[in-house]
Design a protein around this nucleic acid. Sequence first.
DNA 1: GAATTTACGTCAGCCTTGTTGACATTCCAA
DNA 2: TTGGAATGTCAACAAGGCTGACGTAAATTC
Lengths: 166, 166
Amino acid sequence: MAETSAKGESLLFLTDEQLRKGIEAMFFAYRGFTADPDRILETMDYGRAHHRAIHFINRSPGLTVSGLLALLGVTKQSLNRVLRTLFEDGLVEARVGKTDKRERRLHLTEKGAALERALSDAQRARMRAAYRAAGPQAVQGFRTVLEAMMDPEMRRQYLGLREEAQ
Amino acid sequence: MAETSAKGESLLFLTDEQLRKGIEAMFFAYRGFTADPDRILETMDYGRAHHRAIHFINRSPGLTVSGLLALLGVTKQSLNRVLRTLFEDGLVEARVGKTDKRERRLHLTEKGAALERALSDAQRARMRAAYRAAGPQAVQGFRTVLEAMMDPEMRRQYLGLREEAQ
DNA sequence: GAATTTACGTCAGCCTTGTTGACATTCCAA
DNA sequence: TTGGAATGTCAACAAGGCTGACGTAAATTC
């Protein structure tokens, strides 16, 4: 992949110092990345874990619990604690699977969708500003490097998004 | 900034869908980013918080506690718990400041430096593989977008690295 | 039709890492 | 000399990870 650019021209970008800069960039940028939604969440009684669940349920309506578990990479006990509060507060609802009645298909309620919008609007605003400042070429590179940094299994999840909703 | 590229050519990279992909890329990539050091840390009795402290002390020997506090963005009580175990285990040592004797200048011991090397070797290996696969142009874009995504204060910290050691 | 496996929930307990609040010490600087 | 900065520390609490064990209903397999 990335056969395009002059890859062999110079390996200066692979020095330990360059890599360290990249590592710190990830650290600091991730803080910015989560800062805006975190501010919204803390006014309610939610945390980042709730945000992640809401995000993926919104992205793939009808997602099963085990599907969500695989995406988030946590234990079911941990996820359940979060899901329970989302059910109780009426942000998420579970519908029994049509073909397999053991499954619980997760959907956002109107209220849940509203929160999702608030959270992702905030997060997208920052992302949009960063993208705009950096330009399309940089965005392309950004995505390429991030994708290469994922574990293979996560990369599958990331790339195979479209076909795993119901 | 980034006056270089054809910025006005097309704004397709700013669609909500593109932004959502970017958001998920950050999420999944960050998991990969921390996975290797995490594996090493959990064999010892340490966590990610220890890693972060060790990283920044290594980068800026002689860093003060409050300097580290600012970099990490946590409370002193939280940091202190971590620092204490690092002192006890002989990975970090504190030297009283020369000019200001209230300050405790933090340094890695040989043992601490060894752990730092192990952790950053693991993390750099993944970063290097990603960089190599993506190519220098992509790496440039990656860094540009991440930098734009940081909070201004964090960007200062990130860019002003070199001059804050003792 | 019985046995097993799968999907899910739940109880209990533990750990790390974050938080707030309060208080003490030391030392620099005005 | 006095205020404030740099630091440590005690206590208590919360979020959100984890493991282990157990239960139930539905699907699947033998």
